[in-house]
Write a protein that binds this DNA or RNA. Structure first.
Length: 535
DNA sequence: GTAGGGTTAG
């Protein structure tokens, strides 16, 4: 059979192929090439088809063309397939293709191959990732510094992410010029394993820093709960390089820090800052803002932000943040309403969402609703209740004096109850004067957490209240002899720039009356401005 | 002709 004459000239369909932006068009042209036989007779056709399929996120047909119509693939084609598999979230298959390339030995992997392969590694099991990483490392050494800075920083990043800091440092040393991205990866690697000082030393030693360098260090501080350091480094950045615009992860980290510190003014300032800088406020940033405002006590503001986000941009973490924020602020009804709304939008709740929902029920004493949710969780949504969920339920039932049911629930748990559960149960036993169950709980608590003074104290109070002086005295004596310490619940409140401290149960504070009055007035003002905002 | 960095809800 004669080769169609068109094969002598690049057919116009080949040009069309490059313009395709959906799979149907690619399929149509593919069919035409099959019919005309061009697919096996024009060398460029299968290449272009592979590229077109990968570009429209369909890697399977690309692979089958690769295997049937390509007889001597080059690095570019391997790269295309490997990249397609990574985008298709099949990193293990991407690695298989890399191994095939190495095995056949006719193609030399280039910078792109290495970069893609290293990216695939970060999604693999640790041992497999290290093993492939080492293979790439061999190529880096063989190339003697000729490999691009992308490969160097990707390899450094892989080792650093896996916590292989010595190897990461070693690769860094193999690059000729200073590789900012690689140093950034090292900074974040050190922070990831808690070696913050070493990270800071690397950061200080850099001659050239980019936004990612500052971001890696700031994010590293927040990761290690060094929230003040994070905010202070951000201040350093604004001073030393006012032109630098923070990236998204930096903003999220800063807001996390503000939330944990309860630093509302700083949080607000960052909010204004990102608005002024014209940064796009992604779902992640919105989530961090909502979380920050909720943790700083301004749930109205959280809710306001939440409502301005289009439903299609609301992911499960965003829903979780506002649901648990409302729950913590005692607004159970609103929290449950949003939970239903979320399900109405077709988002499947997960365990974290249910913890928030159950804690909302718990804090508002909605026991029947709580039980309904707890049952629904397993039966409708197929979520296995975790120890936190059991904890919520036990606390809820026990608080309400339904100690027998709480006890039953503890017995039905698949794993052993922890100190949180026994502690909650014990404190309810004390509250409801059930010394029989209480002493049982106290014994279990002493098994799982013998070293907490607060637990001993709780036991002492329970026995004391119930008139069991002997046990109470015995515990008191033991605490005295072992010098075990109890902690004090404290809370802080800032009024007009002055921080006041309260000890739990303490109403003797010399400014108490005044602060209560001011709080009421602030609350009224906040309500008013909230009404203005929403109307 | 192909190329990221990190984060958030209990």
């Amino acid at each position: 059979m004669a080769i169609p004459s068109v094969s002598l000239h690049p057919p116009s369909d080949l040009l069309l192929l490059q313009l395709c932006n959906n799979i149907h068009e690619v399929r149509q042209l593919h069919a035409k090439f099959l019919v005309s036989g061009l697919i096996n007779h024009h060398p460029v056709v299968p290449r272009r088809l592979i590229q077109a399929y990968v570009a429209t996120s369909h890697v399977e047909p690309a692979i089958s063309i690769f295997e049937t119509s390509i007889h001597s693939p080059d690095a570019f084609l391997y790269n295309t397939i490997i990249r397609g598999l990574i985008n298709d979230s099949s990193p293990d298959r991407a690695i298989l293709f890399y191994k095939k390339l190495l095995l056949e030995g006719t193609v030399i992997p280039d910078n792109f191959t290495h970069t893609f392969v290293l990216k695939a590694c970060s999604h693999l099991q640790e041992d497999e990732a290290v093993s492939v990483g080492r293979q790439v490392h061999c190529w880096v050494i063989k190339a003697g510094g000729e490999l691009g800075s992308y490969v160097h920083s990707s390899l450094t990043h892989l080792y650093a992410t896996l916590g292989f800091m010595d190897e990461a440092e070693h690769v860094l040393g193999e690059s000729f010029e200073e590789n900012v991205d690689a140093v950034n990866a090292i900074i974040s690697g050190y922070c990831r394993c808690g070696r913050v000082d070493e990270a800071r030393a690397k950061f200080e030693g850099m001659t050239d820093r980019n936004v990612a360098s500052w971001s890696a260090m700031i994010t590293g501080y927040t990761r290690n709960e060094m929230d003040l350091e994070a905010l202070s480094l951000f201040q350093d950045m604004s001073v030393s390089d006012p032109e630098l615009i923070p990236n998204e992860s930096m903003v999220v980290s800063l807001l996390t820090a503000c939330g944990r510190l309860g630093a509302l003014p700083q949080g607000r300032w960052i909010h204004k800052y990102i608005e002024r800088a014209g940064m796009k406020i992604s779902t992640n940033v919105s989530t961090a803002l909502i979380d920050m405002y909720a943790k700083c006590g301004n749930i109205q503001c959280s809710y306001e932000i939440f409502q301005h986000i289009a439903s299609r941009d609301r992911d499960i973490v965003l829903w979780g943040t506002i649901i648990s924020g409302l729950a913590k602020h005692g607004q159970a009804a609103k929290s449950l309403e949003l939970f239903d709304e979320m399900i109405g939008h077709g988002i499947q709740p997960n365990g974290v969402i249910f913890t928030a929902v159950l804690s909302a029920c718990n804090h508002s004493g909605l026991i029947e609703k709580g039980q309904e949710c707890f049952n629904q969780m397993a039966k409708v949504f197929r979520i296995v209740p975790s120890i936190e969920h059991y904890g919520c339920m036990v606390d809820m039932l026990a608080r309400a004096g339904r100690l027998a049911e709480a006890e039953e629930l503890i017995a039905s748990m698949p794993e052993k109850a922890n100190s949180v559960i026994w502690g909650a149960f014990l404190s309810s036993c004390r509250m409801h004067n059930d010394v029989r169950r209480g002493s049982w709980a106290f014994q279990r608590l002493m098994e799982v957490e013998p070293l907490s003074g607060d637990r001993w104290k709780l036991g002492e109070l329970m026995f004391g209240n119930a008139g069991r002086k002997m046990e109470a005295t015995k515990i008191r004596k033991l605490m005295h002899e072992t010098e075990i310490e109890t902690t004090v619940g404290r809370s802080f409140i800032e009024v007009a720039g002055v921080v006041h401290e309260f000890v739990a149960g303490d109403i003797m504070h010399n400014k108490a009356e005044e602060i209560y009055r001011m709080c009421r007035s602030i609350h009224r003002t906040m309500r008013k401005s909230f009404m203005n905002m929403t109307s």
